[in-house]
Simulated scan of single mutants.
Amino acid sequence: MNTIAESKSSSLREAWRGIQQAKPGIRIREAAKDLGASEAELLATKAGEGVVRLQGPWPELLKSFKTLGKVMSLTRNDACILEHKGPFQDVNVTGDGPRAMATVIGPVETRVFFHAWHVAFAVTEEKSDRILKSIQVFDKSGEAVTKIYLQEKSDEEAYRSIIEEFRSPDQSAELEVEPYTIDPLNGPQDREAFLKEWSELKDTHDFFGMLRRHKVHRYHALELGSGKFTYQVDAQITPKQILDSASSTKLPIMIFAGNRGNLQIHQGKVRTIRVLERGHAGPEHWLNILDPDFNMHMRMDFVYSAWVVQKPTTEGLVTSVELFDREKNMIAQFFGLRKPGIPEREEWREVVKNLRAL
């Protein structure tokens, strides 16, 4: 590490220490924002002191999570966090290079996009009276992609083996990050052709490919489909109404939330729904699911719009509720739980029907 880089990382580390003293209990994500840095940059400053930088190949690192046994898998964006406890049961990798992706099926279910995996760390840290051990993956901007925390019955020997196998030769305290540039999506060139293709969908998974072919931002697609395939509902009451209904009727649902490198999925019933307020800089309104092996934390003051979206399939219409922030980034999606080849449940359609339309 050169002198300038060493000075920068040292200054960042001291600034992080100072903010932790000024705001005890502050989360690393919040501290990074206060310091104008990223989570990954802060972690790098502790290399050699409870932090080990890891390297790929990323598909092999993902597969190695199967050896850990029961863990807690955390995936988040700015407004929503999903946490599942369980093993990485079934990991399937497809494609090569930038197109490589993976599906994880089982108690932990995710869709993984390796093009966004840039750096990872094994982290040992003290929280209150606990020692937390984790593997944390970040994109090139230093934003967290996913975090895997060991639990009481996790295999710590397997964790140590992963660290040794994937340890990077670079254990410096300096980390270079760069922001993502967003390609403008100015489509569709032909609105009618776009909506016609939408009407002819056979599978919900074809929706993303349709957007890509027509170069349409997802939010703009919902605007284009308004009145035909989509309509808006009250953003501030919709998420809690869905969860309260699903909890009281024991209706199994699906919740999708993630970021550019990882999409985590909940499938099943939800039970304990709570609304809490917290925050260092001011009140933050959080909608929570607090079940034994599944937690969701959604920051409701970031939820700006909510849409009901319908997609034709060979089994009939499939209905989702999609939440967006003020910048039109997707926060989360809700579906009624269904299996391939099975029509959507009427109970889910009734939940959606009862949402307050705008």
Rank of each mutant, 00 (worst) to 15 (best):
T204C: 06
P179Y: 05
L337H: 03
W16P: 01
I237H: 11
R130K: 15
E41S: 13
L224N: 03
P292K: 01
F208N: 04
R167A: 13
E39R: 07
I255L: 14
K215F: 02
A102I: 06
A306Y: 08
G48L: 10
V112N: 13
P343A: 13
I131V: 14
E284H: 14
S320Y: 05
I163E: 14
L290S: 12
V233Y: 04
V137K: 02
G142N: 08
L251F: 03
T3M: 14
F166R: 02
L42R: 02
I81D: 06
L224M: 11
R260F: 00
H220G: 03
W117A: 00
L68C: 10
T103S: 10
L263A: 09
Q310R: 13
E277L: 08
F166H: 01
I4V: 11
A306F: 10
N329E: 07
N329H: 15
L276Q: 11
L82K: 01
I28R: 12
E200L: 15
P252I: 00
K133A: 00
I342E: 08
L358M: 08
E39Y: 02
V351W: 03
Q232P: 09
K353A: 09
Q264D: 05
A221T: 09
T230G: 05
A357D: 03
M72H: 05
F121P: 02
K269P: 00
I148N: 09
K339R: 13
T146W: 13
